[in-house]
Design a protein around this nucleic acid. Structure first.
Length: 412
RNA sequence: GCGGGUGUAGCUCAGUUGGUUAGAGCGCCAGGUUGUGGUCCUGGAUGUCGUGAGUUCGAAUCUCAUCACUCGCCCCA
């Protein structure tokens, strides 16, 4: 076994896996396009502040998981740990506010220094969308509906549940946070060590703790729903109503919280039980304050991201088999190369067997699942013809070169 | 970052209470005569037993460290 290992938490996508990966992306993007989304490709690294100032200084992602480094000119840069901040930055620097509403789709690698586990890598890939410039709840409905549609297309609708909650607007959230902190502070003796820490850094997180003691405490905790002001309440109702109209089933989870600070109002998560403790497949929410906070024109937004590796593990994909034509030279290779080229120019997928006798070359063609073999035998060649063997039926016929493409058409 | 598990041929795994030449299946390679695959038969190659130390006359088997993966926590997509 080689000592040459990949960096911890990184993985090579070998051809089969890469194929699945790309297929997941293409299916997702194909559906996003039907909803009017166009792709945006932003840099893989940004100035560190783009993330540190906007995701929340106390979040784990910012405080201990970023791959940050100083470049040769002394700038602090960070490999993107998520996609939204970069898109928001691009929105501002590109002056895109005059093109609202904007529907953007992105995909690509993200980096977080975490302890690797199944479905959790240090370099992983996300695809996601951002819908910018629409204040109303119909944007939330559209974003979530698109997500459900993509998951369905990937064949994992049945194993997935959609959990939904509202964090309310800034004032509702602040009021609730205060009430929750007050409640929890009176019960510190019953909270786990982790939750005591959460109480300081991100109190809402205590709500979805897995610790049994915490759960008992949280049962009696004040509910977000009771702290939503009228506008927030109505917004949430309309989102739920909209989802019912398009038949997207929802499980309201009052304890659903988001990890990053920029979220408000709608928060949602599509989860699966098939991934162990990495149950979240796709998650997102509304972030009306983000772009303004970054220094851009106040612009509402909602978006979500999904882990491509997680999607790929769960997806039931019908991967069409590539079935090439095998060109098998018996004489000089030049002739075979010229013929292979002619067929490729004509749109055929052609494999050229380079070595071995006919037996080996046919065996190789078979292993590649070639649909047919084009055999350049000397006898046939002397008659300006080749032998074409159907590898499924074993039937072989002599075909004049002049009509080769026509006869091969059925093997495309 | 915390706690547990695993690590033997390309892959999936077996290797008894430490004992000398480390195995199987699949895959791979070759052959079953001269230009014909898939099935079948025969033969063959491959491992510093994750890495590094230690204990021992002797270690894949025991100890320690280290790396990677993995399960739970944490975090999140």
């Amino acid at each position: 076994m080689s000592t040459l290992q990949p960096v911890r938490g990184t993985h090579d996508l070998l051809p089969d896996e890469a194929r699945r990966h790309r297929l997941v992306e293409e299916i997702a993007f194909g559906i996003a396009r039907r909803y009017g989304f166009g792709e945006i490709i932003t840099p893989i690294f940004e100035f560190t502040e783009v993330f540190s100032r906007n995701l929340g200084e106390t979040t784990d992602v910012v405080s201990k998981e970023m791959y940050s480094f100083t470049d040769r000119s002394g700038e602090s840069l960070t490999l993107r740990p998520e996609g939204t901040a970069g898109v928001a930055r691009a929105f501002i620097s590109g002056g895109l506010s005059q093109h609202l509403p904007l529907k953007l789709f992105y995909r690509g690698p993200m980096f977080r220094y975490e302890r690797p586990q199944k479905g959790r890598q240090r370099q992983f890939h996300q695809l996601g969308i951002e819908l910018l410039g629409i204040e109303g709840p119909q944007a939330d409905v559209e974003a979530i509906t698109l997500a459900a549609h993509i998951l369905q297309a990937l064949g994992l609708k049945d194993h997935i549940t959609l959990e939904l909650n509202s964090l309310g607007d800034a004032s509702s959230r602040a009021a609730y946070r205060e009430a929750l902190v007050a409640f929890l502070s009176g019960r510190k003796d019953k909270l786990s060590k982790d939750s005591l820490d959460r109480l300081e850094r991100n109190p809402l997180r205590v709500l979805d703790s897995k610790d049994e003691g915490d759960r008992e405490v949280v049962v009696d905790a004040p509910l977000m729903a009771d702290y939503l002001n009228d506008a927030s309440r109505q917004f949430f109702d309309e989102v739920q109503h909209g989802l019912s109209i398009v038949d997207v089933p929802v499980l309201i989870n009052q304890r659903l919280v988001r990890g990053l600070d920029y979220y408000c109002h709608t928060a949602f998560e599509f989860t699966s039980t098939a991934l162990g403790s990495q149950g979240t497949v796709l998650a997102g929410g509304r972030y009306d304050g983000l772009i303004g906070q970054m220094g851009g024109p106040a612009t509402p937004g909602i978006g979500w991201a999904a882990g491509i590796e997680r999607l790929s593990m769960l997806a039931e994909l019908a991967i069409a088999e590539e079935r090439p034509l095998a060109v098998i030279p018996m004489g000089p290779i030049d002739v075979a190369q010229a013929l292979a080229q002619r067929l490729r120019q004509d749109g055929f997928n052609v494999e050229l067997g380079y070595s071995g006798n006919m037996k080996k070359r046919l065996a190789r063609a078979n292993k590649l699942h070639a649909r047919a073999a084009v055999i350049l035998g000397e006898d046939e060649w002397s008659r300006q013809a080749v032998a074409v063997r159907d590898l499924d039926t074993g039937l072989q016929e002599e075909v004049p070169l002049a009509v080769l493409e026509d006869r091969l058409a059925r093997f495309r």
